[in-house]
Each structure stands twice: as C-alpha cells, then as structure tokens.
Design a protein around this nucleic acid. Structure first.
Lengths: 212, 212
DNA sequence: AACAAACTGTACCATGAGTCAAGTTGCACG
DNA sequence: CGTGCAACTTGACTCATGGTACAGTTTGTT
C-alpha cells in the first residue's frame, strides 16, 4: 500500500510574519478592503484555514499590521536619532545631523510601493475598530513627543529668532513625511520627500542658529 | 381597478451630482473598494440600474470623482490667491496674505470626514487605470506651477537669505496639506493643518523678508 | 405621436469572508 | 520509547455582497 506522506509542506515558523509582509505590500498598493485573504494565502502558499489559524478574522490582521508597523517605526526613529545624539553633544547640531540622516534614509526607500500604513489606514478608518485607530494616533503622538523634547533642548540653548510653537514644529516631521510620500508616489519622483526634509532642516537652522 | 402610478419619483436632474457627492464622502471614510454601489444608490434613492445609466462602470465613477475633485480644487486655489493678489501689489505680502487665508479656510473644513481625494486615491492607485492616476499627478503639478511662479516673483524682488530650491518650496504647500489632513484626522485635531500652514508662512517670511 | 433622458426590475455569476472537522508535524515529558 | 499536546496546515463547504447585463417603463420635450 502506497503512502503519500510529506506532500504537505513542513510547518514554517515564520508564516505569520510572511502573511503580514504580504498584507502590508498589498494594502499599500490598493487599500485594506481591496486586499483579499485569498491573495495573501496565494502569495505565502498556504490555504485559507491556515490564515484563520494565525488571525481570528480580518480585523485581527489589521491590528497585527498596525502593531508591526509601530514596532518598525519606533526602531527606525530610535536608530536614527539616538545615533545622531551620540555623535554630537550640541542639541541643535545633533538634530540637524539626525534630519540629514532621515532625509538620506527616505531617499533610499524600496522602489515598489513606498508608503506608510498610518496614512493608508487613516484614509480608511471606518473599516477599523477604535483600538486600531487609537494605536495609530499613539504612533503619531510618539513622534510628536520625541521631536518636541529635542526642540525644547535646542530652544533652551538657542532662543528662536521668532516665536515658535514647539508642538507644531514637532508635528512638521510627521506631516512632511506623510505628505511627501503621497507626492513621491503620485508624481513617481522619490526625491520629493527627502528634499522636503532637507528644507525643513534649513528652516530649523534658520530659526535657531545664531545669526551670522 | 386601482392603479398605482407615480410611485416612481420624478427624474431629478442632479442625481449624478448627488451620486458623486455621496461617493466622495464614502471614499474618504473607507476607501474606494469598500464603497459599494449599493450604498450610494441607497443614499441617493435610486436603483442599481439608475447608477449604471450615469456611469458606465465603477471605474467610470472613479474618473468622474477625480475630475470633480480637480475642478473644485482649482476653483478653491483660484479664489484664494487671485483675491490675495488683488489686495496687494507686493508679491511677498500678497502671498503671505494668501497663505493666511488658506490657513483660515483649512481651519473651517467640514467636520465629518475632511480629507483629500488625491491622497485617498494615491494609496489605492492600483485600483485605478493610468488615466485617473495621470489626472491626479496633473493636479499636483498644477499646484507646483502655481506656487513656483509666485516664488519666482518674490525671489526676484527679495533675494532669499539662504539658497532655496523653488520647486521644493512650491511642493511644500501640497505636502503640508496632505500630511496635515492625515494628522488632523488621526489625532482628531482640526488645528494641526492650519498651524502647519502658518508655520510655513513664517518660514517664507524668514527666508525672503529683509532682515530687521 | 415620437423620441430621448432618466430611470426600474430581475437575474446572473464571481468573489470573498468566515466555518468545520480533520489531518500532520515537532517537541516536551514521563 | 511512546504518548500527548500545541503549533500548524488542509479541503470542502456556506452564505452574503457586489459588479454587471438587459429588457422594460416612465417622464418631459418637440
């Protein structure tokens, strides 16, 4: 009696992660609602039930995507500005270095569908429950806190040339990032976002650096 | 024999426009794919076949939405900056007035789902055909041209304090608008975008206005 | 009376979310 | 060594929805 064993692929530990990866690419390309579970499992090579083993339902997938995004986002910012701080004792110079590195990083984004889940989710927010929306908001507030803290240290040593609202200044980073990604994408010109960031850097320098 | 006549509502000439209006609200809330034709006709009070009288298919609806958006967008910018120009002979002062009016307008957006179709479509671009995407890009380039022209006139009379790329400067308007709308929406704080614009205004003044 | 514009009613079919019961594999523990 | 459990996967199924086609109907206009 012949036995067909091992036709089944061996269980892979990273299936969940690969699903999230495929989902992110698809959602950035066409949105959450248009991203079908069928296409995700086809990309990863499992069956539908396999998907529902990893995620309770599609809403659960959304939440996992958001968490993954926030994690990566935090890691990115950490690596960027903590390193810039180490290199420079002066808060203004350290920040300017950080912004330059940020611009360079944004210039080297993956070519295919660069974009930000936060923005994609923002424009489809009625599809998600309160929890996911709150996570998104929390991510933005984290940027604000992080940047605001730095501007406070800078303003302490270098009084701004004109009155400046530090929260607004802090939000500019995220604002330019989201807006720049949209322009990048629609105009198919990856230089737009980095140039916006470098221009913001000019503004910061103009605002805080002693005249001369 | 009883006859039930006139159960059918009389044909309304603005049905198409009302469909587009409902579609815009729905798309800004949950995206294009999640917006069903069923819900649109329910909102407007016609049947499915009525919808397909007005639009060949869903792609046709997308195109019409984009055209409508571009038209309104152009009208808004026209009314804004043409008026600011009339009021002021000096290009820099006129522009600063225009930016202030822009900020005020953005502070008084409709409360429900303020947002921009351009951004929503950008993050679902694989759903649309080349034509619609090209229209979107054309809208952005129109902003760039418009602002760049103004910055050229300003720079002619007021040499910038530091070297500035006028295209980048011009793109900042759209970038801040798109990014700011996203922050507004996620953080549920309608003051973010206007504050970003006013800060940009400060930058422009700092950049071009004679020191003193 | 005729015709076009603005619809209605009905039916079709693909897709997509989610369910269920069952199977397999690797690993921990007695 | 084997037994048992948890992680992982399969396949076949249901059920609702959504886009689309098409033929007929009403209304306003000439």
């Amino acid at each position: 009696m012949v036995q067909f064993v091992m036709l089944q692929a061996p269980p892979r530990k990273d299936t969940r992660e690969r699903l999230l990866e495929a989902a992110e690419a698809a959602v950035l390309a066409k949105g959450f609602a248009a991203t079908s579970i069928d296409e995700l499992i086809a990309a990863v090579g499992i069956t539908k039930s396999g998907f529902f083993y990893h995620f309770k339902d599609k809403a659960d997938l959304a939440k996992a995507m958001m968490l993954r995004y926030l994690e990566q986002d935090k890691a990115l910012l950490d690596s960027l500005f903590d390193r810039a701080d180490e290199l420079n004792e002066d808060p203004l110079h350290g920040f300017l270095v950080g912004l330059k590195m940020f611009a360079e990083m944004m210039a080297n984004l993956p070519a295919n569908y660069p974009g930000c889940l936060a923005a994609s989710f923002a424009y489809q927010d009625t599809l998600f429950n309160r929890e996911v929306c709150a996570l998104n908001a929390e991510g933005m507030l984290a940027w604000r806190r992080r940047f605001r803290e730095r501007f406070e240290r800078i303003a302490e040593r270098y009084p701004p040339r004109i009155p400046a609202d530090l929260d607004t200044l802090a939000d500019t980073a995220y604002t330019l990032a989201e807006g720049g990604l949209i322009l990048n994408r629609v105009l198919k010109d990856p230089t737009i976002l980095p140039r916006q960031i470098l221009q913001f850097r000019d503004f910061v320098r103009l605002l805080f650096a002693p005249a001369g």
